Simulated scan of single mutants.
Amino acid sequence: MTQLVLEQALNGLQFGLMLFLLAAGLTLVFGIMDMINLAHGSLYMVGAYIAASVAEQSGSFVLAVIVAVGATAIIGALLELAVLRRLYRRDHLSQVLATFALILVSNEAVRMIWGDQPVMLAMPEALSGPVEIGGFMYPAYRLLIVVVGVVAAASLYLLVAKTRLGMWVRAGASNREMAQAMGVDVRRLFTIVFAIGAALCALAGALLGPLLAVQVGMGESILILAFVVIVIGGIGSVRGALVGSLIVGVSDTLGRALLPTLLREIVPLEIAASLGPALASILIYLLMATILFWRPEGLFPARA
């Protein structure tokens, strides 16, 4: 039982760090631009498809990740310049409708380019086996995802906390009008932030591609969890996005793995088989409601 808990905790850490890559860009866009971007998950999907195509043509997984991150960042910047910039002064309902339309357009564009069938993205052969950690075996590729996620989180923290660009980002998240009055080029800042968010999406999509199916619509389900993360962590807060991602990732993974087993000790097997997955699926939403009852603005709001 201890080994199962440790293994699932590592799986939850890995899932949480990938959620952070999605949620970090989303919370910056939401916190600084006051922009609800439902198409954020589509960039995650596009990054995964680009990585799969490059890996198939070149045979190099590392090259596939690099190209996917760079190409998706460019796509994100162009999307912000061409479409999203026109929505900043619109109300949230207009933003939701417009970005939902972008989801539909993105899905159809992917179908036209890659087809309707899932695309395979193979993990590096050198990382296809397990490694020993603390007396039990754990997949080497999942461990790589954990390491990359930690490095990406640390790099984003240094960018936001220690650089001039990060100072502008923090100022924009706290008070956008004051930052603009103090001379910050908000338009350029918006484009840079959106490109960074798109690159992080692509990194998550490329790394999770070998574990999940690369298919049309893959960004919608994970986008819901990303919104849960930024609500829990606090809108506009990178630190909140990291803490919220880890809470959601570990809670969701451990809940799905352990709740059915624990329920079998309390209720009959037939009831546990149906009740366990149902409770596990709503666990993070109950957790979100509890945190918001305690702290309505989230754990680390940027505008505290």
Rank of each mutant, 00 (worst) to 15 (best):
155 S>P: 11
194 F>L: 13
129 G>C: 12
134 G>A: 14
158 L>E: 03
208 L>N: 15
158 L>G: 05
161 A>S: 08
143 L>V: 14
120 M>Q: 02
115 G>S: 10
154 A>C: 04
130 P>M: 00
203 L>T: 14
139 P>V: 07
183 G>A: 01
180 Q>M: 14
198 A>I: 14
120 M>E: 05
183 G>D: 03
205 G>Q: 01
178 M>L: 15
165 L>T: 15
141 Y>L: 08
139 P>Y: 06
200 L>Q: 09
146 V>T: 04
132 E>S: 04
214 V>Y: 04
151 V>D: 01
199 A>S: 15
169 V>W: 13
136 F>N: 12
164 R>Q: 04
216 V>C: 10
155 S>F: 09
192 I>D: 14
136 F>H: 13
192 I>T: 10
179 A>M: 01
142 R>S: 09
178 M>D: 05
138 Y>Q: 05
132 E>Y: 05
118 P>M: 14
122 A>W: 08
178 M>A: 15
174 S>G: 10
127 L>C: 04
180 Q>S: 13
205 G>S: 04
197 G>W: 06
138 Y>D: 12
126 A>S: 02
139 P>L: 10
201 C>V: 13
161 A>L: 05
218 M>R: 04
203 L>R: 13
121 L>D: 12
115 G>A: 02
149 G>V: 11
118 P>I: 03
110 V>Q: 12
193 V>N: 00
178 M>R: 14
125 E>T: 01
167 M>T: 12
113 I>L: 15
160 V>N: 00
213 A>R: 08
144 L>W: 10
